[in-house]
Each structure stands twice: as structure tokens, then as C-alpha cells.
Design a protein around this nucleic acid. Sequence first.
DNA 1: CGTTGGCTTGACCGGACAGTCAAGTAGGTT
DNA 2: AACCTACTTGACTGTCCGGTCAAGCCAACG
Lengths: 199, 199
Amino acid sequence: MDRKLTQRGEERRSQLMAYATQRFAQNGFHPTSVAEITEGLGVGKGVFYWYFDSKEELLRAILADAQLDLRRRQRAAVSGAASPSDGIERGIRASMEWSIQHPDYFRLFQFAATDDRFNNGLRKGEQVAVNDAAKVLAAAMEAGEIAQGDATLLSHALLGVHTHLVHLVHRGVLEPTDDVIDAAVDFCLHGLLDRPASA
Amino acid sequence: MDRKLTQRGEERRSQLMAYATQRFAQNGFHPTSVAEITEGLGVGKGVFYWYFDSKEELLRAILADAQLDLRRRQRAAVSGAASPSDGIERGIRASMEWSIQHPDYFRLFQFAATDDRFNNGLRKGEQVAVNDAAKVLAAAMEAGEIAQGDATLLSHALLGVHTHLVHLVHRGVLEPTDDVIDAAVDFCLHGLLDRPASA
DNA sequence: CGTTGGCTTGACCGGACAGTCAAGTAGGTT
DNA sequence: AACCTACTTGACTGTCCGGTCAAGCCAACG
């Protein structure tokens, strides 16, 4: 869908995306109908199809936006790092903070990962983020700051810890405090065996 | 749905569950219709509703079965452990092996975690498994085999590593070899900083 | 061989849903 | 004022879906 949009049009489009994000996250993608979205906004159904080709395209657009925002945040965090290993820590912290602050986006990512219709689009973005992380890890290995290993696989391990712990925060199992993030960082850096006394 | 089932009935029920598992995993729960399941099996639609109250109940039954099987495998693995830390390693290995061997179940778990209609049922089971793991971790801390920390949170961190790496195996990003499991175990035990040379 | 009850059939129902479209509105430009 | 075009409306369509049900089938048992 490529359409010339006025200022007003852009706002309407954003409004649709924001409301749909909320509904999809709370109610699920499939169970949420297009009519539910337009009615929730008090507009006619045609409005939706003026801005989006389909419900699927809408979700794809939402996911792309969210990924862009997350990556911006990650890049900004890592760019100020004093050393590779500091970059790792900043990356983990920034990712977790963002994910905790954006529960709806996080939830949509989780859903999209289970559906091939959307997963393919996500993978590209995840790939880029993981490659970035792997580069930092490789640099840290090079600098002797961390032990040798498969940088890509380790990046994914970090991602796994991040994802699962954030999920628990959103479920209310863990409090959204810095303690959780600290614990995640400690675990990623030291594992179970060799954890610093401060943990 | 409580119904007296003959041998034949039990087989039909299992057949429905097995086929639905496959379809749900490949095509998604919502996009897969009941008619698709019964037609795929070459039976009338009424057969489905003889064995299950609804599509939802079917998925719940599948998930419960899968969880039971996984927990059996985990318990068997951990029961033969020589020490708490050996139990941790066995638990991780058994869980990953099971998840790699049951991609459809794994995928349904992932989906169910994104949908409140099913997530609640899953949590109980996950809770039990995590509590088991936390007990082993606590014992290992007690025995001085691993550093002190929040055993529950650390169990979840292990779960996060497990889940994400298995996901990659199913996506074909990683080969389903023991190397992946070895790397996961190493990461969980030593983190990034203090990894043994063998890694 | 008749009866019981587990099992199967498939047409049917009410409703919901994604997407369309002809008609209309309104803000900006000339 | 006339006009253009971005935007909006909401009834409508065709389809599909979850679930029902009256009727029939058949294996087992007495």
C-alpha cells in the first residue's frame, strides 16, 4: 500500500497502528477482527483499507516499526561502550529495558515468532541484531575479555535469557526492577558456577 | 468431555490428537479448522465432537499430554544424578533433547505461551518443572557447587537458554547435534567470562 | 438373533469475518 | 466559488467456521 498521505492521514495511520498493537497484544492477532479495530476508534471500516491492504500487512508494519525502535535503542546503548565487554552488558541492559517498557511490542514479537507468515520478516531483523551482538562478542574474545566460543550461538543464548526473563516480568512473576536485569547480566557473564559474591 | 471409550475409541482419540498436533504446529491453531482435521483423517465432522468438546479443549489435551511426557523425561534424567550440579546438567540435556525430538510439541508450547486461553494451563506445569529445577539449584548452592543466587530466577534463565537454542535448531539455524547442547550447558554453567578451554 | 451403546455420518445453522465499493465529505488550492 | 483529491462511510458479499443433531452403522454380548 503506497498512498500519498497528508499530515492528517499519517496521524490516522499511526492511530490505527497504535490501537491495533494494543488489541493484538491483549486479545491475540487472529481473534481480533478488523471491525473491532475500526469500531474501537469510532471510524468506518473503509478507513482501515484506505491505509492497509490487509490485517496481515498491518501487523507486519507494526512489527517493522517496533524492530526499528528496538534496534535504535540497542545501537545507541552499545555505541557509548568503554570496551567490548562493557558493550555486551549495555546491550543486554538496553534490550531488557526496552522490552520491559514495551510489553505490547514484546508480546507481538513472541506471537510472530510462532507464525511463519510473520516470522520470516522478523528473522531478518533478528539476524541483524544478533550479528551486531556477535561482532561485539567476537571483539571481546579478541581482546581477551571473555573466553573463546561460537559468538553467534552465544548471542542467541543471551537473547534467550533476555526473552524469557522479560516474559516473566510481563507475566507478573518478577518485579520490573533493575535487580532482574542485574541478575540477567550476572548470569550471562558468569553462568552458575563462577558468580561474583555481589550476586 | 468424559466418555466411556473402547480400545477403538482410544485409538481414534489418539489419532485425532496426533494429526491435530501436526496441523496446528505447521499451520497454526487458529488457521486450522476442525473440518480440515476430520477431512484429513477421512472421517465425518461429528467424530471430532464425539471425543472433544471444542477445538480449544483438544489443544489443551495435547499440551497436557506433551507436558506430562516432557516432565517424565526430565525426572528420569535428574533422578540418576551423582550430585546436584550433575543434576542440573542432566536436566538441561534431557530437556533440550526432548524438545529437539518433538518439534511439533515445542512449537505448540511456544504458541500457547502467547495466548492467555492456553497459557494459564501451561503455567502450572512450567511452575512445577521450574520448582523442581530450583530445588536442584538450591541443593547445589547448599553443597557449595555453584554460587549463591535466586534459584527460581536462575532456573528461568536456564529455561530461556534452552528455549531459544532449541528454537534455532527447529528453524534450521543450528544443526541438531550434541555440540549445541554442550555449548548450552557450558554457557549455563560458566557464562561468558569464565568458560573452560574445552569450549 | 436381537438389543445395547459406542461410534460415525454429513447436512445444517447462526454468526462472524476479511475485504469491496459506490457514494459522500471536507480541507486545501486556484 | 469551483474544483480536486485525500479521506470517510457503512451496507454488502461471499466465504468459512465452530458446533449441532437426527439418523444410521456395527461390534459385542446375552
